[in-house]
Design a protein around this nucleic acid. Structure first.
Lengths: 345, 345
DNA sequence: TTCCTGTCCTGGAACGATCCAAGGATAGGC
DNA sequence: GCCTATCCTTGGATCGTTCCAGGACAGGAA
């Protein structure tokens, strides 16, 4: 390929730039990766040519030499327990934006839903990604074990439930704190007998959230006997559970493990002619679209997903730079979004 | 690096496999890419070694040589007009799964929301992706123009509104058909004066859907005068619009451009003591979580997003294989999910 | 035997970047 | 005017794969 041909090529290479700028390839490479090594006038000349030709380093070549793809793997699952789809959307979007600031991109892959390990190994062996973000930790963290074993960097969204003292970096949202906020908010509104509608006992996330309700009730000196219900995450199941609980007229508050359950409670109130907010207070969890559009508006616990993504990327950078991770576990606190389902007036 | 060292290396290469199998590198490469060129016994021997070592070709090296990354770029936007977040989730998931079947992965990138072209060019110049999937075509398709100009393969989700005879491949869902289904469903339930609550006139998607309502009403010989409302996509705006329309007691049906708007109508009915389904029929659009959990259940038009993703990947493969695209434009039909908001009993 | 054909396999070169060790320019000191 | 020290710059080698041209070998026809 003749030099003149290359100059007009759609994809200029380092050599093209070097020739045009009258320097060697290495100098151009330094202009990109270690600009402080160049004399200012040389740097400026090289940068001008880079700009002029619209040169961008070939990722494959760079990846081959440096053994770093600048890609972060994320196994993209369908909606998961405790995470509505819209939640993942908020999270992933911030992840994409935050990683972009350092030239990283998110690579989505899929895997057999029955095998939480599927997909990871292949990408690693192909050196296709530098690190992973793991989001489905509610059923234990076999992925973390696998990745630690083969020495691949990763950060999880979700604490290691089974091994509280696991050393890998993780970020999570304090569900107990969220349920406590919800319960305290209902207590402040004057409710005393506040029920909990949550998930089955096997759900770690569900039990964590439930513990927040329990501790808030304990702190207020309220008895929780018979008030804690465990059902599947389903509007109708919650509606029926609420009907049963409302047979006791003293029950005037509901804290729920999800918006779906909270909406089920709203339906029951509606059927009984009770006014949400005025007569009975209801709080959901996740601040999903459902909570926003439900009549008359469902107060809900909102997870700081944007902040979770930022923290995860921060940890990823630390891990990738081989620096010691000083603070490998980060627990973030959710906030309460108040709507009319808890407002008396 | 000594041969024995390499054999125990975490990342075996083609050379490792070749040496171990007693063949040349090229033969191993053929075993992977053109197995029919090898004698069956040689092929079996090579495959056994590949299996034994857990060898996977290095993506960077392959990408450098073949100039194909097996990555599909997708600019990941926050929620867009006419597409709720949960919708994107369904779509992206199928996209990931379908592309995986041919060894492709999805690469997410972000861009300045104000500049629909941001991000594409850089990935192309870096030869980081083989093709793009474009999802935000509602405001024209400058991306398509850019990509066609530089000869990059792409498929759009969404027809080219501004140039109906554009030649690039696209897949879209027939919104007019969806609104027609909704309106006909209401007509069948005995409603005559059926209102349309849709978006502002600037929205191409909104106007397309509205045209379906108009044609169904025309076909039924019903006058649409004063029944077509254009507002922003917002529960309260829809609620107030519905109140105004319901001043005319003959209005007993609502077809809406989104679930958000449909839910607003449900709120208005609730405030007026009207029974959804029995007194007034309401249909939303998108079959979002809101439609599923709204009381008493909102009938909604559901887009075949899984099918859209499959068709897009099919078109991508055709384009990437440099074969002529026989059918570059594919319009899919939505379906109606019936819930209690349109059931009389 | 000789030549030819076709099948199967081989070794060198290339993709485009970075690493490395060594070469050259510049300036200052003698 | 020469030498040294300090930078900056240079060309060659390398990452792991695929492309290319050609070699080895067996079998059939002349």
């Amino acid at each position: 390929m003749s030099p003149s041909r290359r100059l007009t090529d759609a994809h200029p290479t380092l050599a093209t730039v070097a020739q045009r700028a009258g320097v060697s390839r290495q100098t151009v490479s330094n202009a990109l990766n270690n600009p402080e090594l160049l004399r200012p006038d040389t740097l400026a000349r090289v940068q001008a040519v880079i700009e002029e030709l619209g040169y961008t380093p070939n990722r494959a070549a760079r990846q081959l030499r440096t053994r770093s793809s600048h890609l972060i793997g994320l196994r993209f699952e369908p909606a998961q327990e405790g995470t509505s789809n819209a939640m993942m959307d908020r999270f992933v979007h911030t992840l994409v934006e935050t990683t972009a600031r350092t030239g990283h991109h998110i690579l989505l892959f899929s895997g057999d839903p029955a095998d939480p390990l599927d997909g990871y190994d292949e990408l690693l062996r192909a050196t296709a990604v530098d690190a992973f973000v793991i989001t489905d930790t509610y059923a234990g963290t076999p992925q973390a074990d696998l990745l630690r074993r083969v020495g691949a960097p990763f950060v999880t969204f979700g604490r290691p439930w089974d091994e509280p003292d696991a050393q890998h970096p993780w970020v999570d949202v304090d569900g107990a704190c969220g349920a406590r906020l919800a319960t305290e908010h209902l207590l402040e509104a004057g409710h005393r007998r506040i029920a909990w509608i949550g998930w089955e006992e096997e759900s770690r996330i569900g039990e964590d959230r439930r513990s927040g309700w329990e501790s808030a009730m304990d702190a207020a000196g309220e008895d929780t006997g018979g008030l804690g219900i465990r059902i599947t995450d389903n509007v109708d199941a919650a509606r029926m559970a609420a009907h049963a609980l409302l047979e006791d007229p003293a029950v005037t508050g509901f804290a729920c493990a999800s918006d779906t359950l909270g909406i089920g409670v709203l339906h029951a109130l509606h059927e009984r002619g009770l006014r949400p907010g005025a007569d009975v207070g209801v709080v959901g969890f996740d601040d999903s679209m459902g909570a926003q559009v439900a009549w008359p508006g469902l107060t809900s616990v909102r997870q700081p997903l944007e902040q979770v993504a930022v923290e995860i990327v921060d940890l990823l950078h630390t891990v990738l730079s081989l620096k010691p991770v000083l603070e490998p576990a980060r627990m973030l606190e959710p906030t309460l979004v108040v709507r009319r389902s808890t407002q008396r007036s």
